[in-house]
Lab assay of single mutants.
Amino acid sequence: IRVFLPNKQRTVVNVRNGMSLHDCLMKALKVRGLQPECCAVFRLLHEHKGKKARLDWNTDAASLIGEELQV
């Protein structure tokens, strides 16, 4: 999953079965001084340019493999 972060940063996270978005993104956020409780995560909708859909931090990350997200 490719993730666009604040301050023009980005990362790619690996996903294993059973992991939530929170689990996958925790380290990437922590390294940058961010906390999931203070952030929202969105899936970028490529079929609708510029649109995005808000996701819950408990979403199964395996269902988002190959997607691009924005925090």
Rank of each mutant, 00 (worst) to 15 (best):
30 K>E: 14
8 K>F: 02
27 K>R: 11
33 G>I: 03
64 L>E: 00
56 D>K: 02
67 E>W: 07
42 F>V: 01
26 M>A: 15
57 W>L: 00
29 L>S: 01
35 Q>N: 11
40 A>W: 09
45 L>D: 11
8 K>C: 07
9 Q>E: 15
7 N>C: 02
5 L>Q: 06
51 K>S: 08
46 H>Q: 11
54 R>D: 07
19 M>Q: 14
17 N>T: 14
15 V>D: 00
50 G>M: 07
45 L>N: 15
53 A>N: 10
66 G>D: 05
42 F>S: 04
48 H>P: 14
9 Q>Y: 02
46 H>T: 12
19 M>D: 11
2 R>I: 15
53 A>L: 13
34 L>C: 03
10 R>V: 15
27 K>F: 08
45 L>F: 12
41 V>Q: 01
53 A>G: 07
23 D>W: 05
13 V>S: 01
19 M>L: 09
58 N>G: 11
70 Q>W: 10
17 N>W: 09
40 A>G: 10
16 R>K: 11
63 S>A: 11
23 D>V: 08
69 L>E: 03
18 G>M: 00
2 R>Q: 09
68 E>Y: 05
1 I>V: 03
63 S>R: 07
2 R>V: 14
60 D>S: 10
36 P>G: 03
71 V>H: 02
4 F>K: 09
63 S>E: 10
44 L>Q: 11
57 W>I: 06
48 H>D: 13
22 H>M: 13
13 V>A: 06
4 F>D: 09
66 G>A: 02
69 L>N: 06
4 F>M: 14
19 M>A: 09
15 V>G: 06
51 K>C: 10
57 W>R: 01
2 R>C: 06
33 G>R: 04
68 E>K: 03
58 N>R: 10
23 D>T: 13
52 K>A: 14
41 V>A: 07
28 A>Q: 06
23 D>Y: 04
60 D>H: 10
65 I>E: 06
31 V>L: 11
44 L>N: 12
8 K>M: 09
51 K>T: 12
56 D>Q: 07
51 K>M: 14
22 H>Y: 13
13 V>E: 03
52 K>Q: 15
57 W>K: 00
18 G>E: 07
33 G>M: 02
39 C>A: 03
12 V>H: 06
59 T>V: 12
71 V>R: 02
10 R>D: 15
60 D>E: 12
6 P>G: 04
57 W>Q: 04
65 I>L: 09
65 I>N: 14
42 F>C: 01
25 L>V: 01
7 N>L: 00
68 E>M: 06
45 L>I: 10
12 V>C: 13
62 A>R: 11
59 T>E: 07
9 Q>T: 07
36 P>Q: 07
58 N>Y: 08
65 I>R: 06
60 D>C: 09
60 D>V: 01
23 D>A: 09
11 T>R: 02
46 H>W: 04
54 R>F: 07
21 L>T: 06
50 G>Q: 12
69 L>K: 05
10 R>Y: 15
37 E>A: 06
36 P>T: 06
6 P>K: 05
53 A>R: 09
13 V>M: 06
3 V>T: 00
1 I>F: 09
9 Q>H: 07
21 L>C: 04
58 N>V: 02
37 E>C: 05
37 E>M: 06
46 H>N: 13
17 N>R: 13
29 L>M: 09
1 I>G: 00
51 K>G: 14
67 E>L: 05
25 L>W: 01
39 C>W: 02
14 N>Y: 09
67 E>A: 12
16 R>N: 12
30 K>F: 09
16 R>I: 12
66 G>H: 08
67 E>N: 08
9 Q>V: 08
12 V>L: 07
45 L>S: 15
52 K>G: 12
25 L>H: 05
2 R>T: 15
70 Q>C: 14
26 M>F: 14
63 S>Q: 09
27 K>E: 15
60 D>F: 06
37 E>S: 12
50 G>I: 07
4 F>E: 11
62 A>T: 13
44 L>A: 10
10 R>K: 14
21 L>V: 06
60 D>R: 01
46 H>F: 05
20 S>D: 08
61 A>F: 02
11 T>H: 11
30 K>V: 12
62 A>C: 13
5 L>W: 13
51 K>L: 12
38 C>S: 14
51 K>H: 13
64 L>D: 05
40 A>S: 14
4 F>S: 11
30 K>Y: 10
44 L>F: 10
35 Q>P: 06
3 V>M: 04
18 G>S: 05
29 L>W: 04
26 M>G: 14
36 P>K: 07
60 D>T: 05
44 L>K: 12
16 R>Q: 15
42 F>Q: 01
39 C>L: 02
49 K>L: 09
31 V>I: 12
31 V>G: 10
51 K>Q: 14
8 K>G: 15
62 A>Q: 13
4 F>L: 15
7 N>P: 02
18 G>T: 01
52 K>F: 13
58 N>D: 13
65 I>A: 14
26 M>T: 12
17 N>G: 12
70 Q>S: 11
61 A>R: 04
20 S>L: 03
11 T>G: 02
39 C>H: 05
69 L>P: 06
6 P>E: 01
38 C>T: 13
14 N>L: 10
64 L>M: 08
14 N>Q: 15
43 R>A: 05
63 S>I: 07
8 K>A: 12
12 V>E: 15
12 V>D: 06
30 K>T: 14
45 L>M: 14
7 N>W: 03
29 L>T: 03
9 Q>I: 11
62 A>E: 14
41 V>M: 05
33 G>D: 07
55 L>W: 01
48 H>R: 13
41 V>C: 09
52 K>T: 10
31 V>A: 13
59 T>C: 13
40 A>Y: 11
41 V>L: 06
39 C>K: 02
59 T>H: 05
30 K>C: 12
23 D>H: 05
66 G>F: 01
15 V>K: 03
48 H>V: 12
59 T>Y: 04
56 D>W: 02
27 K>A: 11
30 K>M: 12
63 S>T: 11
18 G>D: 04
63 S>N: 12
30 K>S: 12
49 K>T: 12
38 C>R: 13
12 V>T: 11
41 V>Y: 00
66 G>S: 00
54 R>T: 09
70 Q>R: 05
63 S>H: 07
10 R>W: 15
71 V>A: 00
52 K>M: 14
44 L>H: 11
63 S>V: 05
23 D>F: 02
45 L>W: 10
25 L>Y: 00
16 R>T: 12
39 C>R: 05
13 V>G: 03
37 E>T: 06
69 L>T: 01
56 D>F: 02
4 F>N: 12
68 E>C: 11
22 H>V: 10
50 G>Y: 12
6 P>R: 03
55 L>E: 06
4 F>A: 08
51 K>E: 15
42 F>W: 04
59 T>N: 02
34 L>D: 09
57 W>V: 06
38 C>K: 14
39 C>F: 01
28 A>C: 14
70 Q>I: 11
20 S>R: 08
44 L>C: 09
30 K>N: 12
43 R>P: 05
23 D>S: 09
41 V>R: 02
61 A>P: 03
14 N>G: 11
4 F>R: 08
59 T>W: 02
37 E>G: 09
29 L>R: 01
67 E>C: 10
45 L>C: 15
26 M>V: 14
35 Q>H: 09
27 K>V: 08
50 G>L: 09
69 L>F: 07
67 E>M: 07
21 L>N: 02
14 N>H: 09
43 R>Y: 15
67 E>R: 03
31 V>H: 08
8 K>R: 11
50 G>N: 03
12 V>S: 11
48 H>F: 11
39 C>M: 02
57 W>T: 02
68 E>A: 08
8 K>Y: 02
71 V>M: 06
14 N>R: 11
17 N>V: 11
10 R>F: 10
70 Q>P: 00
1 I>L: 08
9 Q>A: 08
39 C>S: 04
39 C>T: 03
68 E>N: 09
40 A>P: 01
5 L>M: 06
54 R>E: 15
31 V>D: 15
16 R>M: 08
21 L>M: 01
34 L>G: 01
55 L>H: 04
60 D>I: 09
36 P>E: 08
70 Q>G: 00
19 M>P: 00
15 V>P: 08
19 M>K: 06
56 D>A: 08
16 R>Y: 07
18 G>H: 06
40 A>H: 12
11 T>S: 07
55 L>S: 06
21 L>W: 05
58 N>P: 00
46 H>P: 11
16 R>H: 11
11 T>Y: 05
1 I>D: 03
1 I>M: 08
13 V>C: 14
54 R>G: 06
15 V>I: 08
7 N>K: 06
12 V>F: 09
52 K>D: 10
41 V>I: 08
69 L>M: 01
34 L>M: 12
5 L>E: 05
25 L>E: 02
55 L>Q: 02
12 V>Q: 10
4 F>W: 13
50 G>D: 12
59 T>Q: 13
46 H>E: 13
54 R>Q: 14
5 L>F: 12
70 Q>T: 11
3 V>W: 00
60 D>M: 10
71 V>F: 02
69 L>S: 00
16 R>E: 15
17 N>K: 15
19 M>H: 03
43 R>M: 06
3 V>L: 07
15 V>R: 03
30 K>A: 12
8 K>P: 00
29 L>K: 05
63 S>W: 02
19 M>W: 08
18 G>N: 08
48 H>A: 13
62 A>L: 08
51 K>D: 15
71 V>N: 00
8 K>H: 13
37 E>P: 08
66 G>I: 04
28 A>P: 12
